[in-house]
């Protein structure tokens, strides 16, 4: 009876049902469809793939095509794109951490109003458009852009350096776009830290560097993980930055997926690319989720 009551709808379901159903339908089920279509074959049709299940003369035919996956493993282009995406995302995360940690630390040490204002100034760029901010770098890195013009005028170089359409430009773009997402969770973590711990350490004779390495840093691991995942995971699938700043030099997997879908109209291969990307990212996503739910419990 109790068990039954637990499952019967009560008034709480007025709160639970709408977001639950919405996310199930528009976030969870679509992933199953991506996996399904990745086992299909491309066809000149609308929609452009062969159905997996067909009911013909009383026989249910199931056609599973693993060709898309063997294709991805055979052509080194895809493996290269996955590896370079992971590499670029990982190094961008490290660079964001190296810049973002001191920034978050400096802000967390400020007093009331100034602290809020400085935090706002870090987040504010992310409220404008990512597309526009990446575009800004196109103007700076071009052959006749600001950096080259200044270097030419000063006489450091005789002819413009190629800065745009390089892997370096992709790093600059990703770090620039994702830096606020690194600072925010780090700040949230550092500002909660109990200052009495540091005072106690100081009273016991620990120097500033020792206090930082032995107390602040270990206690902020949660913020480091959250910030790193907020940068790393979306950066692996980034499309806009490599497309506008990377040219042909940086093939990232997000760009490959985009090309398979929009240029080749090969939905099954695009789905297989997405499925493999998700498989690679599932562990980082779980790590991020674990940190997020621990945050909920800590605050309760």
């Amino acid at each position: 009876m109790n068990l039954l009551r637990r499952w019967l709808p009560d008034r709480r379901w007025g709160v639970i049902a709408p977001p639950f159903l919405w996310l199930s339908l528009f976030f969870v089920i679509p992933f199953a469809l991506v996996f399904k279509i990745s086992l299909s074959e491309m066809a000149i049709a609308q929609p452009p793939y062969v159905p997996l299940l067909e009911y013909l003369d009383g026989v249910l035919n199931v056609r599973l095509n693993f060709g898309n996956y063997t294709w991805l493993f055979d052509d080194p282009l895809y493996a290269d794109a996955y590896l370079s995406s992971l590499g670029i995302a990982a190094w961008s995360t490290v660079i964001c951490l190296a810049i973002g940690y001191p920034m978050a630390y400096a802000i967390s040490k400020m007093r009331g109003s100034l602290q809020n204002l400085c935090l706002l100034l870090v987040v504010l760029p992310s409220w404008t458009s990512l597309l526009i901010r990446v575009y800004a770098w196109m103007g700076i890195l071009k052959n006749d852009g600001i950096i080259n013009n200044v270097l030419l005028a000063v006489g450091l170089i005789a002819e413009p350096l190629r800065l745009l359409n390089t892997t370096g430009a992709v790093y600059v773009g990703i770090v620039y776009a994702y830096l606020p997402f690194m600072v925010l969770p780090l700040y949230a973590n550092l500002t909660r830290m109990d200052p009495r711990l540091l005072e106690a350490a100081a009273d016991l004779g620990a120097r500033p560097l020792t206090r930082f390495l032995r107390i602040t840093l270990p206690l902020s691991v949660g913020g480091v993980i959250a910030g790193s995942m907020l940068v790393f995971i979306p950066a692996v699938g980034e499309f806009v930055v490599p497309e506008l700043l990377g040219g042909n030099e940086a093939t990232m997997i997000g760009k490959v997926l985009w090309g398979e879908f929009f240029a080749n109209r090969d939905w099954p291969v695009a789905s297989a690319v997405a499925t493999l990307m998700l498989l690679v990212l599932i562990l980082p996503i779980l790590l991020f989720h674990r940190y997020q739910s621990r945050e909920l419990e800590v605050a309760r």
Binding site: S24, V236, G237
Partner: peptide
């Protein structure tokens, strides 16, 4: 999980999966 995952999910995956839906 359904609430936190969209925060980090690469946009190309979300876009493709919703289109297929």
């Amino acid at each position: 999980g359904m609430v936190t995952a969209p925060l980090v999910m690469p946009e190309v995956i979300t876009g493709l999966s919703l289109l297929l839906l």
